[in-house]
Each structure stands twice: as C-alpha cells, then as structure tokens.
Design a protein around this nucleic acid. Sequence first.
DNA 1: ACAAAAGTGTTGAATCTACACCCATGC
DNA 2: GCATGGGTGTAGATTCAACACTTTTGT
Lengths: 236, 236
Amino acid sequence: MTTSRRDRAPVSLTVDLVVLTVRDGQLQVLLIVRGAEPYAGQLALPGGFLRPGEDLEVAARRELWEETGVEGGMLHLEQLRTYAARERDPRGRVVTVAYLALAPGLPIPSAGTDAQSARWEPVGNVLSKSVSLAFDHNQILADGVERARSKLEYTTLATVFCGETFTIGELRHVYEVVWGMPLDPRNFNRKVIKTDGFVEPTGATRSLDTGRPAALYRRGNKTDALHPPMLRTTIT
Amino acid sequence: MTTSRRDRAPVSLTVDLVVLTVRDGQLQVLLIVRGAEPYAGQLALPGGFLRPGEDLEVAARRELWEETGVEGGMLHLEQLRTYAARERDPRGRVVTVAYLALAPGLPIPSAGTDAQSARWEPVGNVLSKSVSLAFDHNQILADGVERARSKLEYTTLATVFCGETFTIGELRHVYEVVWGMPLDPRNFNRKVIKTDGFVEPTGATRSLDTGRPAALYRRGNKTDALHPPMLRTTIT
DNA sequence: ACAAAAGTGTTGAATCTACACCCATGC
DNA sequence: GCATGGGTGTAGATTCAACACTTTTGT
C-alpha cells in the first residue's frame, strides 16, 4: 500500500430511495419536489446526505421520514446499487448509495420538513421520460424497477406490496401490475398455494363489493428464495 | 434541503474485488497479503482507495492490476454491494464498494507493486474460517460467492469462467464446482444446447487425454437472463 | 480390446397451460 | 336471477430425472 494521502479522494455520501408501491392498478414511485439547489423545484427521489457515524440503512429510513413523512419502520428495504459517475452531481464528488423499498399501499405522504412536497407518480410516466428527474435519478429508478420485476420471479417479495393479510387475488394483482401482463387467476391460485412457505391461510375471509369472499392469507415463513420460481414464460 | 455543511460526512471510498475462478476442481478467490497497516501481513481481498475523479469500475481494474498483476480488461466485472459499517475500518470512516469479478482459469499472479504477494485460495477454506481475512472481507467474499451461485441459475454467466471456446463438459464442471453438487452430464448437455442463445457451436472439437473428442462452443448472444433457468432442484 | 468421456433415446413422473365448470356473495 | 370474482377439475403438451445405450477417441 503505497497510497499517499492525497490519492484518497474524500467524497460526500448520499442515500437515495426508490420507494415503490401498487396504487390504483399502477406501479408508483415516491417522489419529492426539491426545495434547494441544485435542481430546485424539480422532481427527484427522496434522499440526502449521510451524517457522521450514521449507518446507511438508518440514514435511508431517516431521510424517508424527514422528506416524505413515510414511516420506514416496517417496509422492505434493500440496497440497490451505488452510483459514482464523476458528473452526476454539480456540487462535486457526491456518491450515492441507492436503496430499493417496497411498500403496501401507503397513505399520501404529508410534506415533511425538508421537502416542499412529496407525491406518488406512476413509474410508467417517468420511465417514458414524460417526467424527468434530477441528477441520474431516472437511471436509478429504472434499475430499481428492473430489480423489483426480477425479484418477483424468484422470491416471495410480492407479499410485501400487500398489507398484513391479503387475498390471492390481491397478490396476483401485484404481479400483474409489476410485470405489466395478465395472469390466469386459476393457475396463479394453485401455484401460490402449493409453493411451500409462500403464504399461509389465516382462516378468515374478506368480502369485496361483489363476488364470492376470498380467503385471507399472511406471508409465509419463506422470506426469500422461491423454488421453483414464478415464471413469466413470455419473452423478456 | 436544510442540510448544513457539517452534516455532510466526508468519507473515504475504497474499491474491493471478489475475483473468482475455477481451478483444480475448486472455486478459488484471489487474495493478497497486505503490505501496510492496518492488518499488515494478513490476507485480504485486493482493492484500494478511489482516486480523485476516478470512476469506480476503472479503479477496480487499476487496483486489480497494481496489486495482483491480473489484467482486468476482459473479465466480467459487476458491482456487488457497498459496505459502510462504522467500525469496519480502524482508519476512520472508510466505505467500500465491492465488485464481483468472474474469470477463466488465470495464470498465478505475479506480485505487483502494492502487494507483497498475491495468490489463489479455495473459497471453502475461507468460508469455513480456517482462513481469516482483514476488515469485513470474509463477509464480502461470502456475499460474492452467494451472488455467483445464484447468478449461475438464471443467467448465462457460467460461460465467463470458461475460456474463449469450451466444451459442454467444461461448462458443466463450472456448475458442479460452484454449486458443489454433481450434475447428470447427459441431461446437462441437452439443457444447455436447447437453451437458445446460451452457447453456439464453433464446429471444432477438442481431444482430451482419453475419451471421445468434445464439440467446442463459444458464448451465445444471450448475455444474461436465462428462460427457463438452470434449476438446482435440491434444497437450498 | 478396453477405459473413458461425449452424446442420443426413452420412459414414467411432474409440471404447465388452457380451459370448463362449480361456489358464494351483492344487487 | 344475474353479474362478479373465488376456487376446483381435468386433458393435452411440455419438461424433467433417471438410466440404457451408442459413438469416438487414446492406450
């Protein structure tokens, strides 16, 4: 190690969050309107600077709370990727660690202290570039959505989009929205039920406006890997 | 954004590499003996400080070359994860971005300028703690191996462990070593051949010491996703 | 001839897909 | 009754796992 002290680039670290939910039959992302330069007034992912001695995941939950009022205590949070391109932030060398959060349908967030406002936006509007985000946040969002899509295939993660208890139909709805394709309700039902540890019945049922009441389930004990995976047999 | 300047923790960024290869029927990782404090004389993953204005992936290839003499030009390199626990480095707040590299059987590296020596070590010896690494590198290695194992299932990545051209037997050997389980040569053959874009025949054959010569293949045009995946049907 | 590795055939089991069909509720 | 969504049955196609068997080389 002959690295001299001046070869060690000191950088600022930020944490940004891709918070996804399923609302109104669409996959939506939580965005804020930036209140300060750079990119003041523009839409961006929630996030901010890591504080001295703070852990990344702690910082992620804190920023989420401060900027959007969303309580991060019980949502699924996983590290997505780190972005460090030189020109990504006009303030200098700012490296960001992006996190992916998946949440059940959340209340419309109330503006916190650090943001003028926060809101849900359908990801389709952002990915198609009709809504443009600050920094490289369009890219980060695209990576997050891609991660979510593929994780639905080989993990039980879809259940975190649902509430504490849910019907198989609701779970199927999550898959259909995230993958953007219809699934056969009858085959989906069987597949989920017979996959060990995916969901477990609560015994209760839920009545919708119309139709037969559906059995309610909660998340199974299998946290992640699905064997065999839920296949989307169409082309990718 | 009311973040004051002192709330922005300046950190040092390092890049560390989990370089995996298949040698002598074992999955092996490239390690160096640290030449400087902290952890001088102890084994560690190759890596080092990011230089001002340097991109992460460039830094990863540079450190690999400087510390081990391995030419990173043509090996598969992907970001693994970022580690930022407060106590992970005695020098202060040092955050590391870990990269995973997969390479065909490489020559035994010659020591470079920054390391007293570099060598291959079977990952089993490290994961079982009979070999202990500096910093949190044991954890980083475990995460890298886990990533490699699962990527073999649903991507064509196993081919990067092979040379430019390879036999199906060699490819199967990669799977067997990384997954640590025997596979049926006959079924494996068919599965790989019929999976569109996995491998394509070169027309040539290769003779081993004994047995019928095997047809040679090169990587197919499908870079990543495998549909359907190569399933390990046994318990995980 | 024999050993060894490559590759093909085949068979029964399991799974997937596309339906027909029944069930339970609100209106 | 009728619309609507929940859930079961089932037949044909596809895939999988296991293993017999043939092919092609070196010795």
